[in-house]
Design a protein around this nucleic acid. Structure first.
Lengths: 134, 134
DNA sequence: TTCATTGCAAAAGTTTTGCACGTGC
DNA sequence: GCACGTGCAAAACTTTTGCAATGAA
């Protein structure tokens, strides 16, 4: 993804385009690996060693608040992030720890009459086909 | 829920019945409030002041591992627990922070062929009907 | 220029660990 | 009796905060 595109996207959303934010978003947009803060930090500092972890936290927080990232809370301990903001489910493999996206349709609900649903998160876990065939 | 029932349940599951574990499970089974560790700790120490937080962590961990509790990871920061292990969704209200259970049917999936699904978690958030009518 | 953002260090939490003691089976 | 569970304190982490310096618009 080109820096130019990201800058424009940020402008649309009213986000100031700093090199840190661009690097963080670029990494997320190009690598759909649902990384946690540490992974993002380790990656962006490869190219920009001066970036601090505080700022990575900051960037992720801003980008999430403005709707460019989705927090994936499938791990107990750490929050992961996803630049694919279309609704989809996440599956985590108990063996290899890898996260997979999947599509799922809207379910039939009962018990939420009169509620305003703003965010839906669907997390499955189990064994991925790859680990199963070993 | 009677202590006797809990003891039997534990025996079935191969869990040693200590007073701490019984108190923790009893609280969860009788109060479907999806409490976090701290809430559980504060509640059980009202009756058993000597219980330590380490042990509460321990109990919750064992009971979860043996399938008597479900971890609810709808909050960013803390893990909550639920003694209702039948599949159901959780809704958290952004205003009042309360968590609601809801029933939802199995969705149509694509992208998980050959995967073994062991656990499904569905988390919604938004505004509950109570907060909406204010 | 101006005000938001950055980066450091320190603080604030939460969860885990090591180990001696106690206890359910 | 013995292995397992408990409880304390300390360690290990993760995330947040305060604040001076920097830089995007």
């Amino acid at each position: 993804m080109k820096t130019r595109e990201i800058t424009n996207l940020f402008k649309e959303k009213g986000i100031k385009a700093t090199p840190q934010r661009i690097a963080v978003y670029k990494f997320l947009a190009e690598n759909h690996i649902h990384p946690d803060v540490d992974t993002v930090y380790n990656q962006v500092t490869k190219e920009h060693p001066s970036f601090s972890k505080t700022t990575v936290y900051n960037c992720l927080s801003v980008l999430t608040r403005r709707g460019l990232l989705i927090p994936v809370k499938i791990d107990n301990d750490k929050i992961r992030y996803d630049a694919d903001t279309d609704f989809h489910g996440h599956f985590i493999c108990e063996k290899c720890g890898k996260i997979f996206d999947f599509r799922c349709s809207e379910e039939k609900l009962s018990g939420l009459d009169g509620f305003e649903i703003r965010q839906r998160d669907v997390y499955y876990s189990g064994i991925c086909s790859c680990c199963k065939n070993k």
